[in-house]
Amino acid sequence: MALSTHDKGRVSIEHGEEGKSCEKMTLCVPGQTKTSNAKELTQEDLDKLGSERALVSDFKQMKLEKDAQKNWDLFYKRNTTNFFKDRHWTTREFEELKAFREFESQRLVLLEAGCGVGNCIFPLLEEDLTIFVYACDFSPRAVEFVKQNPLYCPERCCAFQCDLTKDDLIENVPKESVDVVTLIFVLSAVHPNKMTQVLENISRVLKPGGIVLFRDYGLHDHAMLRFKSGSKLGENFYVRQDGTRSYFFSREFLAQLFEEAGFQSVTNDYVLRETVNKKEGLCVPRVFLQSKFTKPAQTHS
């Protein structure tokens, strides 16, 4: 079924970051605000969240978990490589992608956990000729799109399908060989009960002293507040109309997750942005969580 321009805007707000908004949506103000405080809610927002007590049935929740890979594969079948914009902002937001080397010619080894169709990795491969990237995704179709990209080169990139909640990354990535892991708009798609397993899996391939760069949906983001009745799976956890799911993180919950997986917090802040629909005069507040966590250089048994 074809989407109208209005529907495309709605779907992109639900699925995307600041990346692929409707053509009419542009950044309201340059830059963004970082804060340690959660977004303040209006009384209307509080009333809406307070009224959402009914959860999706256990049967449907089990089916959504079972069909998670299929639903993401269908998402990429519908949207191919056209949904998200390339993320040229990663080196600006995460200086570790440039500064992590001890010397200029050192080859940085990166794992893009949940690479989608390569919107993050290909700008990095173009910008940094010495980087090597492991890239994995839940969706086999997304991985194929990565491999079909003209910039894909096996000497510089290794893409593979992986369910981070159960497939051991060590089958494709040498143990403790990765300098930096990017986890960008990925963990929110995982059931909260399985998020720690994802982080433990990542930790096995990350070098001691290595870092995880995280960005995902924050608590009370606009997409969270616009879910309709019948979409709630649990606290801060929702299902979209296409069957894909999204969790909205608080700083405290995210810090606890990483600490339980053996990481230490470096930074952990909300990012507040606004987009505006100039034609309709609507300002849309977005809330993301941007964080950095490190694997301790010394582990104690």
Results as ranks from 00 to 15, higher is better:
Y238S: 09
E44H: 04
V190A: 08
C136P: 02
V276L: 09
S250I: 04
F288R: 06
S21V: 06
R204L: 14
S105K: 13
D86W: 00
L164S: 03
P174H: 11
F253K: 14
T294W: 00
K147M: 13
P154S: 05
Q69V: 11
I131L: 13
R251F: 08
N71S: 08
E18G: 13
F59A: 12
K278V: 06
T5I: 09
V133G: 02
T35E: 09
F248C: 08
K85Y: 03
E40F: 02
D128C: 08
Q197R: 15
T275S: 10
F160Q: 05
A135D: 05
N268R: 10
T244P: 05
F94C: 03
V212Y: 10
E65V: 04
P123Y: 02
N268Q: 09
T35F: 08
E200F: 06
K147G: 07
L254F: 11
A223F: 01
L233F: 07
F293W: 05
L64A: 10
K207G: 13
N172P: 06
Q148P: 01
L183C: 13
L206P: 11
S229N: 15
R10G: 00
P140A: 04
L213T: 04
C283L: 11
T81K: 12
F253I: 13
L254V: 14
V180Y: 01
Q241V: 14
F103Y: 10
V287D: 03
A54Q: 15
P30D: 10
F83M: 07
Q32E: 11
E104D: 13
D45M: 01
R10A: 02
R92N: 09
T80N: 05
A223Q: 11
Y134R: 03
A159R: 05
L49S: 02
C120A: 11
G31V: 00
C157F: 03
A2Q: 15
T91Y: 02
D47A: 09
Q197F: 12
I184D: 03
P296L: 01
L49N: 08
T91Q: 07
M62P: 00
S265M: 12
Q197I: 01
F83P: 02
V180D: 04
F122M: 05
P208C: 11
D47V: 01
E23S: 12
L108I: 06
E95T: 14
A38D: 10
C157Y: 06
C162N: 11
E96A: 06
T182V: 11
F288P: 04
R226S: 12
N149E: 05
T80P: 00
M224L: 13
P174S: 10
T299V: 10
F138E: 06
E127Y: 02
I13K: 01
T130E: 09
Q69D: 02
V146G: 06
V173M: 12
E23Y: 01
D168G: 00
A38K: 09
E23T: 03
L64R: 12
D7K: 07
Q43E: 15
E18W: 14
T81P: 00
A261V: 10
M25S: 12
E23W: 00
V56T: 06
A113I: 05
C157N: 05
A113N: 06
H222D: 12
Q61K: 15
K175E: 15
R87H: 04
E96G: 02
F214C: 09
M224W: 14
G210R: 06
V56R: 08
K70C: 07
N37L: 13
Q298P: 00
E235M: 09
N236S: 14
V11G: 01
N79H: 14
N37Q: 13
D216I: 11
E17S: 14
F84L: 02
